[in-house]
Amino acid sequence: MTLFPCLARKIAAPALLALLAGGASAQQCGNDASGFERWKAEFAPVAQASGIGQRGLQALANARYSQATINADRNQRGVRYALDDFIRIRLGSLDSFAAQARRERDRNPGFYQQLESIYGVPSGILLAIHGMETGFGRITGNENVVSSILTVAYDCRRSDFFRPHAIAALRLVDQGMNPGQSGAAHGEIGHMQFLPGNVLQYGQDANGDGRVDPTNLTDAMATAANFLRQKGWQPGQPYQEGTANFRVLNEWNAATVYQQAIALAAARIDG
């Protein structure tokens, strides 16, 4: 399998961020469904001014408030576990998880060798993330991406963080993503559970078909490797706790227990 890395496309351009900040002042966030339709109407001209086309605007108009997303957002508990409990709940055991990851790698070892050659990220790190995020692609979520990301962009808890990702989701629809695309509760997409803005900014068309598709394993793995490399991953350097590469894992997930599990699992996989 040959990789064809593409240039990363930025979402966080100053003009877009300024536009979103200006539009936000006229928008009222909410903590329940009652103001969502009003908020969508206020968000539509902001989206249009940022370059969203007819497909994206139609997806915005059709979006529905996702109570499942809000329930998940209010009930996040995994990062509170001690490391041993987190590993037991999320991985089963390090040995069994690593064995499964090696089986996944052995399906196409040349692919993972190419990824490390191009981006400098070991297969163990990528496979540990893949397994922890989606069970190696088996559980990618069944919530509508557009509705989910718009719901958390409207919700008062973290609207500033999610508004650029909402614009990005609509842009992905303009670029051909199915408006009915399913993902995780906060709008994460595909094998590695990328938020829409990260798909745009770090996405790699690794299979050379002319589009970045986070539901395609080849594109998703290359995108994850590119993300880590762009965040400061140092090829050939260790990644256990206390190293520079371990600190890069904070860019993937801010929970220390999550970072520790990635590093420990990756060591077993690579070992």
Rank of each mutant, 00 (worst) to 15 (best):
G176E: 03
R105Q: 11
P196K: 01
K10M: 02
L228M: 11
Q76L: 10
A98T: 06
R229N: 08
L217V: 14
N75A: 11
A184C: 03
G35F: 01
L126Q: 02
A266I: 08
A24G: 10
L16P: 12
L127T: 05
P122R: 04
R9F: 08
Q114R: 15
N144I: 00
G92F: 10
A72Y: 10
A12K: 08
R229M: 07
Y258D: 10
I52R: 07
A8P: 15
Q237G: 08
R171Y: 09
P109V: 01
S66C: 05
T215Y: 08
A267Q: 15
R77L: 14
R55F: 00
A41H: 04
A44Q: 11
K40Q: 12
S25A: 14
G187S: 08
S93G: 11
L83A: 06
G242F: 01
N144W: 02
P14M: 00
L94I: 15
T243M: 09
S25D: 12
L7A: 09
A49S: 09
Q259L: 04
L94Y: 11
Q240D: 14
G30R: 04
Q201R: 10
Q76F: 03
A61W: 00
R138Y: 01
A41Y: 07
D270T: 12
R171C: 03
Q48S: 14
Y81G: 03
F194P: 09
R55P: 02
R171L: 11
Y81F: 13
A26H: 09
S123P: 12
G124R: 00
Y112F: 15
G232V: 08
G22W: 01
S123H: 13
L91R: 07
G51C: 05
L126R: 10
T2F: 11
Y65M: 02
P235W: 10
S147R: 02
L264A: 15
L249A: 02
F227D: 03
I167R: 07
L195P: 07
I139M: 10
V46M: 05
N198A: 07
S34T: 15
L7F: 00
A82W: 05
F227H: 10
N245S: 10
D155I: 03
Q58K: 04
N253P: 11
Q48D: 03
N253T: 12
P45M: 04
D213P: 01
V79H: 14
M221A: 07
R90C: 11
G22P: 03
S148F: 00
T140G: 00
D84H: 04
H130D: 05
R103S: 12
R211H: 13
W252F: 13
A255N: 14
D209V: 06
G210K: 09
R103K: 12
R74L: 13
H191V: 05
N245Y: 11
V121H: 04
N142L: 01
A72T: 11
N144P: 05
A263D: 08
K231G: 12
R77Q: 13
S159D: 09
G120A: 06
R38E: 11
H186L: 14
P122A: 02
L150Q: 00
I11A: 02
G197A: 15
H130M: 03
G180Q: 10
G208I: 05
